[in-house]
C-alpha cells in the first residue's frame, strides 16, 4: 500500500499521538456515545476507526471499504461462526453480511450508535436468521440434541482464539447468575428465541425476559470496569 493511502484514514490524529495521545474522554474516542460507559481499550480503538471509515464507505469509497474490511472481517466472521457453527455456512453468511455492509452503508446514521455496533448487529441478525432456518429444516437436530447437554457457557470457554477481550467477557459472564448467563448466551450465541430459552430452562417467559435484561445490564457494569 502506498504511504498516502495508509496514512489517509488517520493522518491528523496519528502522529500527534506519538507526542501526545489525544485527550477526549467524552468525545469520539469513547466506546459508547455515553462516556460513563467505558469499554476495553482495544474495542474503543477499533470503534473510532470503523466510524470514520464507514462514513467514507457510505460515499462509495472502495478503498475505504478495503480498510474497513480489514477492521471488521474478523469480528464479523467470528460472530457469525460462533452462532452458525458450520464453517462453510459461516463463510457464506459472513460474505453476505460484508456485502450488505457495502450496499447499506449510506443508510448508516452515526447519531444512532457506533459503526461497529451497527455492523455487528447486522452480522448477528443474519447469523441468527440462518441458524433458525437451518434448525427449522431439521438439519441440525442431531447436533443440537447432543449439544443440549452442555451449558451454553462451555462453548465460550472452548473457543480457541484466546485474547484478553475474550478473557474479560468470559470473566464478566462468570459473574452473572447461572440463569442470567444461560438466558443471555442461549439467545445471543446459540440463536434461540426467548420462548425457546424459557422452554430449555423450564422457566416462565417473564422470568427469562427479566434475566436477559439483568444479565445484559450486569455485563455492562462489569465490562465497563476493566477499561
Amino acid at each position: 500500500m502506498e504511504p498516502e493511502k495508509s496514512f489517509r484514514a488517520c493522518s491528523t490524529r496519528v502522529f500527534a499521538s506519538l507526542i501526545r495521545i489525544p485527550s477526549e474522554p467524552g468525545g469520539r474516542s469513547a466506546c459508547h456515545s455515553d462516556a460513563s460507559k467505558p469499554c476495553t481499550a482495544a474495542e474503543r480503538g477499533l470503534r473510532v476507526e470503523a466510524d470514520e471509515l464507514l462514513v467514507l464507505v457510505a460515499g462509495g469509497d472502495q478503498k475505504a471499504f478495503e480498510e474497513l474490511y480489514g477492521l471488521v472481517s474478523g469480528p464479523v466472521f467470528g460472530l457469525v461462526r460462533r452462532v452458525v457453527r458450520d464453517p462453510a455456512q459461516s463463510e457464506e453468511v459472513a460474505q453476505e453480511v460484508l456485502l450488505e455492509l457495502w450496499r447499506s452503508a449510506p443508510r448508516f446514521d452515526p447519531g444512532r450508535g457506533s459503526a461497529l455496533s451497527w455492523i455487528l448487529t447486522l452480522a448477528h441478525r443474519r447469523a441468527v436468521d440462518r441458524v433458525r432456518s437451518a434448525r427449522a429444516a431439521g438439519e441440525r437436530e442431531q447436533r443440537e440434541a447432543r449439544r443440549a447437554h452442555h451449558p451454553a457457557f462451555d462453548h465460550v470457554a472452548e473457543e480457541v482464539e484466546a485474547g484478553l477481550e475474550r478473557e474479560w467477557v468470559r470473566r464478566c459472564l462468570d459473574r452473572l447468575t447461572a440463569l442470567q448467563r444461560q438466558s443471555v448466551t442461549l439467545a445471543y450465541y446459540d440463536g434461540y428465541t426467548y420462548r425457546e430459552v424459557a422452554e430449555r430452562l423450564s422457566l416462565p417467559l417473564g422470568t427469562v425476559k427479566t434475566r436477559m435484561r439483568d444479565g445484559l445490564t450486569r455485563l455492562r457494569e462489569c465490562l465497563g470496569g476493566v477499561a
Binding site: V76, L116, S117, A123, H124, E159
Partner: peptide, 20 residues
C-alpha cells in the same frame, strides 16, 4: 441494550478465511 449485546460479539473475533 444492543450496545451491551455487541460486547458479547467482541469476544468471538476470529480470523476470516483467506479467500473471503
Amino acid at each position: 441494550l444492543s450496545e451491551d449485546a455487541v460486547r458479547l460479539a467482541w469476544s468471538t473475533t476470529a480470523l476470516a478465511p483467506p479467500g473471503l
